[in-house]
Structures are given as structure tokens and as C-alpha cells.
């Protein structure tokens, strides 16, 4: 099985460059500096930028980061991740609006639901590899789309609207912009850190070994399918967490969130930012969301622009923004 990195196009932040440990160290120092600046920036951001916009970016950034855990670090292209993002959004929206659940619990509930869906989808999908895996996940997510279209609690084409933000732990009123902003920021950082920990754990190193050479990993005695399934469930759970946050932030859960176009968007975010890099997906998400906002009011068809970026990324810019940056710095 060929993996994306074997074609020499993706760059991995974790891949050691045996000859230049000093540079590697430099690079991780730069990474740390970027992280600190980014966090400080995000803490200050709501005083300068419209908070709902940043929160939307954070939700999608987490979604893309979760997706990248699979694509960038296991080499699995899931073309059905919207099912987990949108599914969790439905679960959380329903739990808050109908059951009156407290927001944090509702988000945990939504993420857990997405993880469960991930388990079911993953068991089927990991039976095939490569492009087949992509097609299978796409088909299964389309099935989930139709199920959500038909079950009553999602309200079909209307979706679940007017989801109340509620009081965090029954104490903090999330209708106040700064309260919900910092709540979302903390959740984002927690999810982001979880992915970072997974990637840099022994478990994550096995995942990357699978990406580099699945057969070798098998012959080393790893039960590759279990590792893949575990990674798939983790990725689905964190993607679900992102979807749940989105339901609370934008107070809506609709079919758009579970549709295949959404699965495509998260692929684009990751590709554009740089697959297999820690920060890439977030940067890609910020760019795509900004662009969508920018063109939403204009006459320009957003789908076409997304398609064009897709084509350009695949043809000319396969490392993505962060991947290219790392390559330039390694020179």
C-alpha cells in the first residue's frame, strides 16, 4: 500500500531528519513559539475581531485537526468526516434544546455519540485501504446523511434551530460573548492538545509507522487494524466535539453539517494548510472560513472557488502552507 508520504509530498513535523537534529530542535522551538503567540493572540482576539467569527474558525480548525489525525498521521483519507461533525451537532443541539442538558455535558454527549458512530463506520471502512477507504467512508456518511434526513428529531430540511447556549455548569451564562468565547477557546485548546498528545505518544508513533509502511508494521507484530480503528474513533470523537461546539456557538444544527460537501471542505482545509503538520489544518480552516465569509455576500460562487483551490493544491501545492514553510526552513 502506498501512503501519501511515500510520494514525498507531505511533510511530517514528527519525522526525524537524522542528519540535522539541531535543525529539528530549532523547528520544534519555532513550533513552540508559534503556539505561544497563537494562544496569546487568541486570548486577545475577541477584543479586536467579531467573536462569533473566531469561534467558528476554532470549531472548524478543531474539526480539521481531528481529520488530519487520520490523513496526516495514519495516511487514511476519510471522505465522510462530516457525518461525525454534523452528527454530533445534532446530538448536542437536541440534548440542549429538548432535554435541557447543560452545555458542557451536551458537548461531551455529542462527542461520545460521534465516537460511537466512528466505531461503527470504522469497523466497516478499515476493511479496505487507500482510495477504497475514501469511497467507503463517503458512502457510509451518505447513508448517515439520509438517516438524519429521515429521523424526526433532526427536523429534516429545517434542522434544529434556535439552540440555546445555556449556562455552563449551571453558573456561567454563555449568552455573554466573552464567556462563550473563552469556553470555546478552552475546548479548542483541549482538543488540539489531545491530538498533539496522541501524535507524539508511542501509540502515535505506531500510527506513523503504519502510514510509512503498513506491511512492515504488520510483520513487526502490530495489530494494524486495531490501531487504525482506534485512531478512527479518536478522530471521529474529536471531530464530533468540534461539531458540538459549533452547534452551541451558531445555535443551529442542519443537514449542511452532515453533507458530503462538508467532508470535502475539511479535506481542503487540511490539504491547504498542510497535511501531517500540527498547525496546518487550523491555518487551512481559518483561510477557508474567511474566504467563505468574504465571498458569501458577493456574486462569486463559493463552490467554484473551493474547487479551484482544491485543484491548485493538488497540482502545485501538495505540501500545503505549513508544509512548504517547514521545507523552506529546513533548507
Amino acid at each position: 500500500m502506498s501512503s501519501l508520504t511515500q510520494s514525498g509530498t507531505a511533510t511530517s513535523g514528527a519525522k526525524e531528519d537524522g542528519k540535522a537534529p539541531a535543525r529539528q530542535k530549532n523547528l520544534s522551538r519555532i513550533g513552540l513559539a508559534v503556539a505561544v503567540i497563537a494562544v496569546l493572540g487568541l486570548i486577545a482576539a475577541p477584543f479586536f475581531v467579531y467573536p462569533v467569527f473566531i469561534m467558528t474558525v476554532l470549531c472548524f480548525a478543531l474539526f480539521a485537526t481531528a481529520f488530519n489525525l487520520l490523513l496526516g498521521y495514519v495516511g487514511l483519507l476519510s471522505f465522510g468526516h462530516a457525518a461525525f461533525f454534523g452528527g454530533a451537532a445534532y446530538f448536542t443541539a437536541h440534548a440542549v434544546k429538548v432535554w435541557g442538558l447543560e452545555p458542557l455535558s451536551a458537548i461531551i454527549f455529542g462527542a461520545a455519540g460521534a465516537g460511537l458512530m466512528g466505531l461503527v463506520v470504522g469497523v466497516v471502512a478499515i476493511r479496505r485501504q487507500g482510495i477504497y477507504f475514501a469511497m467507503v467512508t463517503l458512502a457510509l456518511s451518505q447513508m448517515i446523511f439520509f438517516i438524519f434526513l429521515q429521523v424526526p428529531f433532526t427536523h429534516g430540511e429545517d434542522g434544529i434551530q434556535g439552540v440555546p447556549r445555556g449556562d455552563l455548569l449551571w453558573l456561567i451564562d454563555l449568552n455573554r460573548p466573552l464567556n462563550i468565547y473563552y469556553f470555546v477557546l478552552v475546548l479548542f485548546l483541549a482538543g488540539f492538545y489531545a491530538v498533539w498528545r496522541i501524535v507524539h505518544s508511542p501509540f502515535g508513533h505506531v500510527l506513523q509507522a503504519i502510514r510509512e509502511n503498513e506491511n512492515r508494521a504488520i510483520s513487526l507484530g502490530y495489530r494494524v487494524d486495531r490501531y487504525k480503528l482506534a485512531a478512527f474513533v479518536m478522530s471521529a470523537t474529536i471531530a464530533g466535539m468540534a461539531g458540538s461546539m459549533k452547534a452551541i456557538v451558531l445555535q443551529i444544527a442542519t443537514l449542511t453539517d452532515v453533507a458530503w460537501q462538508m467532508s470535502g471542505e475539511v479535506v481542503l482545509m487540511t490539504l491547504l494548510g498542510g497535511m501531517g503538520t500540527i498547525f496546518g489544518p487550523s491555518i487551512g480552516a481559518a483561510l477557508v472560513i474567511t474566504m467563505q465569509n468574504y465571498f458569501a455576500t458577493s456574486n462569486v460562487p463559493v463552490t467554484v472557488i473551493i474547487g479551484v483551490i482544491f485543484v491548485l493544491c493538488v497540482l502545485l501545492f501538495r505540501r500545503g502552507i505549513v508544509g512548504e514553510a517547514i521545507r523552506l526552513m529546513k533548507r
Partner: peptide
């Protein structure tokens, strides 16, 4: 390259064609 890039390219192509007509 990895076969996934062919899938991604034609996906982008589909978005362009369908988006333009819509």
C-alpha cells in the same frame, strides 16, 4: 503520486463544473 491525489483532483474538478453550472 499516491492515488488519493487523483481522487482529490477530480473532486475539485467536480466542484468547479457543478458550481459553475449552478
Amino acid at each position: 503520486l499516491d492515488h488519493l491525489y487523483g481522487l482529490l483532483f477530480t473532486f475539485g474538478l467536480a466542484l468547479i463544473i457543478e458550481g459553475t453550472f449552478r
